[in-house]
């Protein structure tokens, strides 16, 4: 909400609120919530606008806020922003959910790649919401568990494929080493001959 919204007529505000509540049903995490529950949740959301290339948070910051992307696109970096883009975050995706459960620091750096609008909810407000409305809370947590499980499966698959790749690489390396040694030995023999 901007300062000017504080003075705008009530009707516009109501429309905005309705839009927000409708948008929340498109977010995977909140799709099972009833309208009332979404309305209640929307009271805890802080709307933030980020310009392209603006940093949302860096690796190592304390875990305070979880974000849902309302509009725009963001990129994830593991180390510095010059590194490889790990994952692109799009509209209706969410990030920073690790902070809900672990006291650890941020594990990645998030940078907006386009102009974006994010909805932030603080870790404490989220936990309070889950405590106060346990029915809605269990829906959110179940969805979150599903998402995290699928992440885990994907990561496992990726890990397995990487491991296979690594094995193949090792095999190739061994083979090439054998070839080199054979070449070397054959060369030695030739040298002795000459």
């Amino acid at each position: 909400m901007k300062l000017k919204d504080f003075f705008t007529p009530k009707t516009e505000k109501v429309d905005e609120e309705k839009d927000l509540i409708r948008f929340l049903s498109e977010v995977e995490l909140f799709e099972n919530l009833t309208r009332n529950e979404r309305k209640n949740l929307s009271q805890h959301l802080y709307e933030r606008t980020y310009k392209a290339d603006e940093i949302v948070f860096k690796k190592g910051y304390p875990n305070v806020v979880m974000y849902v992307v309302k509009e725009g696109e963001l990129q994830t970096f593991l180390d510095s922003t010059e590194g490889e883009n790990l994952k692109t975050i799009k509209t209706a995706d969410f990030f920073g959910e690790v902070g809900l459960f672990l006291e650890e620091e941020r594990t990645a750096t998030i940078v907006a790649s386009k102009d974006s609008i994010l909805l932030g909810i603080s870790k404490r407000d989220m936990n309070r919401f889950i405590d106060e409305l346990p029915r809605a809370g269990s829906k959110i947590l179940r969805k979150l568990a599903t998402v995290l499980c699928s992440h885990l499966i994907n990561t496992n698959k990726a890990l397995a494929s990487k491991r296979d790749e690594l094995k193949n690489l090792k095999k190739q390396l061994e083979e090439s080493e054998c070839q080199i040694q054979e070449l070397k030995s054959s060369q030695d023999v030739e040298n002795e001959k000459s």
Binding site: M1, L3, F6, E47, E54, V64, V65, S122, R124
Partner: peptide, 25 residues
């Protein structure tokens, strides 16, 4: 209450948003 809090935090630049929430809580 929530509306006022939202307004207050919307005045804070992105750079200090998380810090201010952290401090407040």
């Amino acid at each position: 209450e929530r509306q006022l809090m939202k307004t207050f935090f919307s005045w804070i630049p992105n750079r200090y948003f998380e810090f201010s929430i952290y401090l407040f809580e």
